[in-house]
Simulated scan of single mutants.
Amino acid sequence: MVRTKPSATVLALIAEVEKRGCTANPFKVERWQKEAWLPRSRDWLVPGSAVLRPEIVHRAVQLAALSRPGRSIAWRGWVFWAFDDTPESAQRLRAALAKTLQRPFVRADVEQVPTGDSDRATRARRKAADRLLEGRRSHRRDFDAILRSHAEAAGFELPSAPSRSMPSPFHRAVLETGARMMLGGSADVTFEDLMQTWEQARPEAAETIERARTAHRKVALNAGDDVDYVDLMEQSPLADGLPGLLRTVEEADDRTICAAVRLCTTASGTLKLLFERAAYEPEILPRLMNDVMWDQWVPHGGIVPDGVAGEAVITLSTVQYLVVPGWPEDLERYRSYMQALLLAPPPKGPNP
């Protein structure tokens, strides 16, 4: 196929990228524009001049650094869409999040979820849940235990694990219950099912779990006398399973969807930098751990791997942002706290 000769502006951008130690070519630039990671070339120049805008050069250098032959930049491309915050970029984020939510169903060849409360439909959903989990291994590495072993080797004591600790979404029991709820919603998973799952995944949180049970019983007993009673299971975003989550993502406005992904990815990037710094400033870790967001976000939402696994982590955090009251404010507060730790000067060593 005959391609148009690259313009002088494109060649100038490639030259600037190469000056900064990265590589680019017209084909890469064309792909970045096709994916809406880089604006159209007519928007690259400082108005009234032939000078490239610094932010365009910076964006191109970032893209060149992320690009590898035969590999997608995966969720890192979402970051550019989130920061651009346009109707087009928001729609691309919706599509990417929806695709990630549906990926396990596509892999398991679950094309249609059986509906209804008949025994036949319930059994069909159970079988579909089993297919979702076929060949899937739960994470055996205990994030908290790994950190503590490294700290002990360095002669540094970390705070004790809080009893409030939520179960990891990657624990086998949580995966099994989650698969059933994604398929059948609150019709297939009761509050007690959730408590039993929590017990299996976090037996050390028995006291917290029993308090939750007691509070739920009191609310249920008083439900008949309370005209304003709301069943929290029915109000959950998972009450309708996967369709409910997809609807939540689709109905979020442009600004909200971009803000959600922007905060989740920025917070994860800041956490990564702090972990790197903690290698020679271990006192950073206790400061990070003495916050509720360490428990609710760091182990299963803060550490983002490459590839589709990272897309799943970002999607999980984004859904929490969209559906959990107060969670965006908590994550923004924690991100600001982490940013302050990152910008703080390192402690001075002992005087010689």
Rank of each mutant, 00 (worst) to 15 (best):
R3Q: 10
A8E: 13
V10Q: 10
A15R: 14
V17K: 05
E18D: 05
E18A: 12
N25T: 03
R31H: 11
E35M: 07
A36M: 09
R42Q: 13
L52K: 08
L52C: 09
Q62F: 05
R68Y: 00
R68D: 00
P69I: 07
F80Q: 05
D84L: 09
S89A: 13
S89F: 03
A90M: 07
Q91S: 14
Q91L: 13
A95H: 12
T100M: 05
Q102E: 14
D109T: 10
V113W: 01
V113L: 08
P114N: 02
S118W: 06
A121L: 09
A124E: 14
R126L: 15
R126M: 12
K127W: 15
A129R: 08
L132C: 03
E134S: 14
R140W: 08
A153N: 10
A153P: 03
A154C: 05
F156A: 01
E157W: 02
L158H: 11
A161Y: 03
P162L: 08
P169K: 01
T177K: 08
S186W: 03
V189H: 00
E192A: 13
E192L: 12
Q196E: 15
W198Q: 08
E199D: 07
E199G: 03
A201Q: 04
R202M: 03
R202G: 00
E204Q: 09
A206F: 06
E207Y: 03
T208D: 01
T208K: 01
E210H: 04
E210A: 10
R211K: 08
T214D: 02
A215L: 06
D228R: 15
D231Y: 06
L232W: 04
S236L: 04
D240A: 09
P243F: 06
V249G: 07
V249F: 13
E250I: 08
E250H: 15
R255A: 15
I257W: 00
C258L: 10
R262Y: 06
A267S: 12
S268Q: 07
L271G: 04
F275T: 08
F275H: 14
Y280Q: 13
I284N: 09
N290S: 14
M293N: 04
Q296E: 14
Q296W: 05
V298P: 01
V298Q: 00
G302D: 02
A309G: 03
G310F: 12
A312S: 13
V319W: 03
E329Y: 10
E332D: 15
Y334M: 03
Y334I: 04
R335K: 13
S336M: 10
Y337H: 10
A340I: 02
L342Q: 07
P347A: 13
K348R: 09
G349E: 09
